Computed example of a mutant assay.
Amino acid sequence: MAYQALDAYLERLNGSTGNAGSAANPNASSASNASKVWLDEQGRAVGRFFNTSLTSAFQAVRSFGGGEVIAYEAFARSYSEIDDGLHLWKLLDQAASDDESVELDRLCRMLHAINYYRQAGDDAPELHLSVHARLLAAVNNNHGVAYRRILSALELPHERIVLQLPVVTPNQRWLLNYVLDNYRRNGFRLGVSANSPLEALSLLDKVRPDLIKVDARELADPDSVALLLLRAADQGVRIFFKRVENREVFDKLEQYGSALAQTIHAQGYLWDTPQAQLQPSGGSGQQAA
């Protein structure tokens, strides 16, 4: 394994049995063991948040053309021994307090880093990790310092991780900028989410992230897409299109890329479903390019 400190940590987890946080008793519940971590028989890191056992799934982000994997986005999933589990997007919304939502978010990001880097080598593409909207206000100051300490302890490269912030309303932009500044101070690259190309154009001017992820289901205005791609290229900001789930959207994006002579980056069920195992880095059999 390329990451010796992570290897040693996984060895300790693998040798830890007979307690509330082990695979022998993954459903034990108490506030004190809410963030226990263990390994399953497949070597996946699994964590617990109260009565819920959770782990990671990864969806590839690909470039048009050859379909090369250029990044992965991590998602929290309920733990299952036989499949990739269920999406846990509602779990943070149902957390009882801000402190618990912060704890859950940090647990998820820790699991994602462990499960990603235990599979990835030295040439691993970047990893995209979402930050839940509730955390924007829940953390009082210095966003990112706790996560940076975890990565440093495991000797994992934080510079390959992009923290992806959620869609915000216009009156939350000040909070978004505050959080972005804190994460930057802790050395992270940053992405933001947009519901449409027009919203992404506004973020491009006011937030200046490293990348923007745009919902590909809202591409009704070709002019705004073209303007976004051109202006982002001028500013060195990468644009990713998410939720590419059918051939019609694929064809639109392919036309934009050809017309502007730009590489298009996209992810969606047209190519990949989130899975525990990382996908091959070459072209996908589902891609119609």
Rank of each mutant, 00 (worst) to 15 (best):
N25I: 00
N25M: 06
N25K: 06
P26E: 02
P26H: 04
P26G: 04
N27K: 10
S29E: 14
S30P: 07
S32D: 10
N33E: 12
K36Y: 03
K36N: 09
W38N: 12
L39M: 13
E41Q: 14
E41S: 12
Q42R: 13
Q42W: 05
Q42S: 11
Q42E: 11
G43P: 06
R44V: 06
R44S: 14
A45Q: 07
A45R: 02
V46M: 09
V46W: 03
R48I: 02
F50W: 13
S53W: 00
L54R: 04
L54F: 06
S56L: 05
S56W: 01
A57I: 06
Q59A: 00
A60K: 00
V61L: 10
R62D: 02
F64M: 14
G66C: 08
G66L: 03
G67K: 11
G67S: 12
E68G: 03
E68M: 05
E68F: 01
V69I: 09
A71S: 15
E73L: 05
E73R: 09
Y79L: 05
E81Y: 05
E81C: 00
I82A: 12
I82R: 05
D84M: 08
G85E: 04
L86K: 10
H87G: 11
Q94M: 13
A95Q: 13
S97E: 03
D98P: 07
D99Q: 08
S101A: 14
S101H: 06
E103G: 00
R106L: 11
R106G: 01
R106K: 12
L107F: 04
L107V: 05
L107E: 09
L107N: 11
R109H: 10
M110A: 13
